[in-house]
Each structure stands twice: as C-alpha cells, then as structure tokens.
Design a protein around this nucleic acid. Structure first.
Lengths: 226, 226
DNA sequence: ATTCGCACACTAGTATGGTAGTTATGCCAA
DNA sequence: TTGGCATAACTACCATACTAGTGTGCGAAT
C-alpha cells in the first residue's frame, strides 16, 4: 500500500501483457504467423485469460494481431500496400510540416537544428547507431515543433514504427548514416533559406531512400508478407 | 442468444455494442462528458459486462472514451489541438494525393470526376443534402483511386469523421454546398490540366473553408471542449 | 453549525467456468 | 492404401463472481 511508485502509475496486468507482446512483435521476437492462444499466454504471464484478452484486442485494433473468432489469433504479417500507405502518409505529413515551418521560420529554428545535426555528427563518429537514430527522430520532431505542429510528430512516429518493424528484417545498413545526415543538412539549409521548394524536394529524397530496401525485403522475405 | 448475425461475418455481442455506441457518440446522441458504466450498458444491451468491456476498450483506443480505472468511463469531449491535427493530416494527405494524381492523370480521370460533379449538381438542385455529402466523399475518394492510393481515402475518412462529429454542433450551413461544388470544379479542372500547383492551391482553399466554422463552434460551445 | 470519520455504493480489473464453433486426429470401411 | 466420418482437442466468446480502489453521504463529535 505504501508503494509510492504504484499509486499514480497504475499498471494493470493487461498493460504488462500488452506492452510485452507489443515489444516482442515489433522487435520480431514473435514472427508473423506465430499462433497465440489466450490460455497459453495467460499461463506464461501468470494471469487469467481476461487481461490477455484485453491485450489481444488492443493489439488487434493496431493491426498487429489477426483475431479470427473461434479459430486462432496470429501475429499479422506485413502487407506491402499498408506499408506503402504508412510511408505515403508520413511523406505527406512531413512535407506539409516543412512548408508550414518555412512560413514561420526564425533563427531559433536554425540554431535548434544545428545543435541536433552536431549531435548526429558526433554519434556517427563515435559509431553510436542508437544515439544516431534517437537524434534522427529529434530532427524530424524539432521541425514539427518549430512548425507549431507538435502532434504531427506523433503521426510521423506511428508511420515510422510500422516501417521500422519491417526493416528489422533487413541486414545492417548502418553505413548509410552519413548519407542520412547529409540529407538532414540539405533540409536544414533550405529551411534556413525559407526555401520550401528545396526543403520539400530534399525531404522527398530523404524519405525515398528506403524504397529499394523495402523492395529487397519484399523480394527476399516474401514469406513474412500476406 | 443467437443474434440476427450475418452467416459469414460473425457479429459478436461486442461488435453490436461497439457499433451502436460508436454511432451514438459520433452523432452526438451521447454528448461529451456523459458517464458510461459497464454495468449500466450491459443491462441496456442485455449482455454481460465482458463484451461491453471489449467495446469500451476499442472506443477508448479511438479516443472516443476516456477510461479512468476505478473511477468512471466518460465520453470524451473535443480537443481543439486534436481536431486541428486531424484537419492538418487530412490536408497533407489530400495535397500529396493530388500531386501524385497529376503525375499519372489520364482522360479516364477527367471523365470519372465529371460524372461525380454531375451527381453533385443534381443533388444540389434537388436539395438532397445527404446525396451531396455522399458524392462529396466520392469525389475525394475518386482522386485517391486515380492516384493509385486507395488507402489514402481511408485516412482521409478517419480525419473527416473526427471533424464531422464536431461539426454536428454547428447550425445548418448547407447553403454553402454550391461553394463546395465550385471548389471541386476548380480542383478537377486543374487536375485535367495536370497543373499540380493550381490543384493543390484550390484544395487548400477548399479544405480551409471549415476554419471559421470550427472557430465559431469553439467559441460558442466551449463546454464540449476539454 | 461545522467538521471529521467511517460505512456504503459505486467504479474497473481480474479470475473462473461454461458454450459454440473450428480444426486436427484417428478409426473404420471401401 | 485411401477416402470419409465421428470424435476429441483445440479456439475465442460470454456470463458470473469476486477483488480492490474511489467517491459520497450520513452521523457523531466538537
């Protein structure tokens, strides 16, 4: 009862099951097609079937699980149309964010991006891929904030998540970090010049770099697609 | 208790509760702030609490219900930032759809849009607002299909739904149907000319027409916002 | 009259038992 | 050996009972 941590942050059993399964699906510890049963998962977590059911429903709503009544529940595979759609939405949002950022750009924005680009540069020279990805996200989020569209970062993140799950299937391609940083520099420069045309064009190229990666995954790992 | 369920599409009790509540929330038969209890709703539908709980969870995931553990579950009010974000995402997607449609435009597209515009024209002269709204949706969906981005129509529809729920609070503004049709004509013309710049600019104006309506609702119906 | 405290009526979360529907299995007959 | 059918072994769905946390209102004490 005196557990201070647990009072405000009430984590239900369903939350634990949901978070764990979510992580395992995204990180591909659970591969597409894996069959999950309420009873089995409830035994694994030491809870009853009800919280598991709640967690399944949430994951089902997010299209991560396919719940077939009276049949079985399986981890959903990738759908190329849906992946492409997620990328399309991200592109569309990101471009419009950039346009609006250009309209309200100030030196504050230039300074904020410069700092993030420095962080990315350091991450690359130190070979810290995790820090690189974190600052990559910071870059895009900063533009959203500077465009006065903070919620856009959430939408972008949701789209990115779906694509990232797929890209876990790819082999290491971290050597391209320098290219991505160069893209960011081009976008930042165009924003500083308040050149929406150049900024959006650079963003198109930046976001298009995954095209071939995804194509390759689709070809070589067809078994994970549905 | 065998429902009149579809034979192939098994409609569970949770589905029925979800669909009904969803409709009532969207149509504002259930106003923001209305308290819903699992027990009460389960009595109303003549089912146990479990399917009601499933339905609540789904609606909670969609941000239509706010589920506060051990306290109560209430219909969520409107959040101006979220409404604006939904409109922003719709704008961004719609603009990019138009750009891609321009890139692959053919006479088929021109013909398809012309037919839809005729339907809208007839709906207006007959004063059939429902038919007008239906063909309005058809117009935007047709552009998505012609741009080879059918899923974009779903995203647009989701965004539109959130805004529409808010606009149910507005008084009748149907007199503007002619203006909206004129907007559509301008967009269609620009697409026919494959003029992406003009088409997107027309779309910006078209989608911006709700600005004042929403502002007014926010001012005069502040009690529904959170 | 005001305030404190406790009982009670609520809430959502969890556990468990049972039902209907689907799939896999294995036996029996051809 | 193989095809078809009965049956067992799953599945998710639903109902009921219980737990624990929260707000409210009444009564007693000041």
């Amino acid at each position: 009862m005196q557990d201070v941590a647990g009072i405000f942050d009430r984590r239900t059993a369903a939350d634990v099951v949901f978070d764990t399964l979510h992580d395992e699906i995204v990180s591909l510890k659970l591969l597409p097609g894996t069959k999950l049963s309420e009873a089995e998962v409830s035994r694994r977590f030491g809870v009853s079937r009800q919280p598991v059911r709640d967690a399944f429903n949430r994951l089902g709503n997010m299209d991560m699980l396919l719940i077939r009544p009276q049949k079985a529940t399986v981890v959903r595979g990738f759908s190329l149309p849906r992946i492409q759609h997620a990328r399309f939405v991200r592109l569309a949002v990101e471009l419009e964010v950039i346009r609006q950022a250009c309209a309200v750009w100030s030196d504050d924005g230039t300074r904020a991006l410069a700092e993030i680009l420095d962080r990315q540069d350091r991450a690359i020279s130190q070979g810290d891929t995790e820090a690189f990805h974190a600052s990559d996200y910071s870059f895009h989020k900063a533009i959203c904030d500077l465009a006065d569209r903070p919620l856009a970062a959430e939408t972008i993140s949701e789209c990115k998540q779906k694509v990232d799950r797929l890209c876990m299937l790819s082999l290491g391609r971290e050597e391209e970090a320098a290219t991505l940083l160069e893209d960011h520099r081009r976008i930042a420069d165009a924003l500083t010049r308040r050149d929406a045309e150049a900024a959006t064009e650079a963003a198109r190229i930046h976001l298009g770099r995954l095209d071939e990666v995804i194509d390759e995954i689709h070809r070589t790992r067809a078994e994970f697609f549905e």
